[in-house]
Amino acid sequence: MRPDVRNPLVEDYLARLRLAAARLPRAQRDDLVADLTAHLDAGAAEAGSEAEIRNLLDAVGDPDQIVAEAMPAPAVVAGSGPSGALALGLGVLALVLAGVGLLIFSIPLAIAVIALGWRARQYARSVAGSAVLATSAFVLGVIALVLPLLLWSVLSSAHSDTPEQQDQRPAEATVPLTPESSVSTTAPG
């Protein structure tokens, strides 16, 4: 029975529940509060005394504990998460690409590896699995991200000192870029 006026003890419990459930994602929060409200209303309708209401609330248990149970986590019956091994493999690939100098590929890959490694690590912790692979992947990802940036800065500073810069021009120089430039080269002197 949905009462017009709830017992103050039940009302107080629901207020504590809503407060504790504030940290849940909206869908879980709405479900949990609605389910427990229905449960308490059904229980309170049967309860004849204040003592029975207290028993009802005791049996339902601590709101914080219930909310902790409702936090999104690996499924109870069967669960799967991001694989640390996959992240590690991608990390090695990112590192190799970074070493070869394919920075366009290695940098996004390294960022993906860091994200995947981090998720895999959290997942491994929540299911008491091994986080070593995921942590290694995470570290590899960071190295693969930092390495190209280092290479880049070293190469570009070395590059500006060399006279080879002139040698790279011809490819551009064969094609006149602007009408003015072609005019100036053909203008009679």
């Binding site: 879980q28 479900d31 949990l32 389910d35 427990l36 449960h39 049996a59 339902v60 248990g61 601590d62 709101p63 504990q65 219930i66 149970e69 409702a70 499924a75 109870v76 019956v77 069967a78």
Partner: peptide, 17 residues
């Protein structure tokens, strides 16, 4: 069951899965 309330999150997960 130690806390009856914790069955509801379990039911939500069973439904989701």
């Amino acid at each position: 069951v130690t806390s009856e309330g914790t069955i509801y999150p379990l039911l939500s997960r069973l439904r989701k899965d």
